[in-house]
């Protein structure tokens, strides 16, 4: 993909992911440029989440799961012996479909990541927490009750908290797996606004079922179907004149 002034950050070559014998992502070739928002769309079960979770090697948690081919982040092969997954996950933040704050205070939730990575100083932590919450547009709502349990927040607030928690370790890439699908429309639009704000600072990969959302927030769109990457291109082009019949069918079936 050619974007003037944007270098490719993530590059997959003939990249596959297997669950046992089932090839959930099949020989995908894709180059994702830095600093943009890339939406991944496709019918459910087509391997979107699997691909996303391959990027920060969250698939390692599933015993039957293994990868083939090559997946490079900034030139570094990810599926190789001796890769430091801790460093990788520090660079690649993730927000999940269902908000999953820890049953701890708001402050401790945000400070969790920085603490792991060695920040002990209380005032530095406080600064990081404030900055992250501000970036996640949550600061004004919670600044008076940082000590409260995060489980007491509303669903939308919890999801923004999770976003702030991911941001707090200062990642390069943010992975979002249907981050708004469990939220009400109001909270959803807040999340979308946020993605708009964060664009440029982070490279964002977002999986979504919602075509309008993909069209609204993303610069690029990738369409997966049954484990194959069917089409990848600028969002405006994919949604107006898709190159493949399958893409067109899927989008028209779902759009509007």
């Amino acid at each position: 993909m050619d974007f003037p002034g944007k270098k490719d950050l993530l590059k997959a070559e003939s990249f596959s992911v297997f669950y046992g014998d089932n090839e959930a992502v099949r020989k995908v070739d894709i180059e994702i440029p830095e600093g943009l928002v890339t939406a991944i769309i496709g019918p459910s079960g087509c391997g979107k989440s699997t691909f996303l979770r391959a990027v920060n090697r969250m698939n390692d948690l599933i015993p039957s799961c293994r990868a083939g081919g090559s997946l490079r982040l900034d030139g570094q092969e990810l599926y190789t012996q001796g890769l430091d997954v801790v460093m990788l996950r520090k660079q690649v933040g993730m927000v999940f479909q269902k908000p999953n704050p820890f049953p701890k205070s708001i402050f401790d939730n945000i400070a969790f990541g920085p603490r792991i990575h060695g920040v002990r100083d209380r005032s530095k932590l406080a600064g990081l927490v404030e900055k992250s919450l501000q970036q996640a547009a949550l600061w004004d709502e919670v600044k008076d009750r940082l000590g409260d349990n995060a489980m007491g927040l509303s669903g939308g607030q919890q999801q923004r908290l999770c976003l702030a928690r991911a941001i707090a370790v200062n990642p390069k890439i943010l992975l979002m797996d249907e981050p708004a699908s469990a939220l009400d429309p109001r909270s959803t639009s807040k999340i979308e606004d946020l993605i708009e704000e964060l664009k440029g600072k982070y490279t964002i990969l977002i999986v979504t079922h919602n075509m309008q959302q993909a069209a609204r927030v993303s610069d690029l769109t990738a369409f997966f179907y049954e484990g194959d990457l069917i089409e990848f291109g600028e969002t405006s082009q994919i949604f107006t004149k898709p190159g493949e019949k399958q893409t067109e069918d899927y989008i028209t079936g779902r759009f509007g």
């Binding site: 969250m58 999953n100 969790f112």
Partner: peptide, 25 residues
């Protein structure tokens, strides 16, 4: 499961996740 994944996705190791997230919960 969410707690486990969230902790791992922030770069926490397995021991750390168990000690700080799973056991308290």
């Amino acid at each position: 499961r969410g707690y486990r994944e969230a902790s791992m996705s922030l770069g926490a190791g397995k021991w750390f996740t168990i000690a700080r997230v799973i056991l308290p919960a």
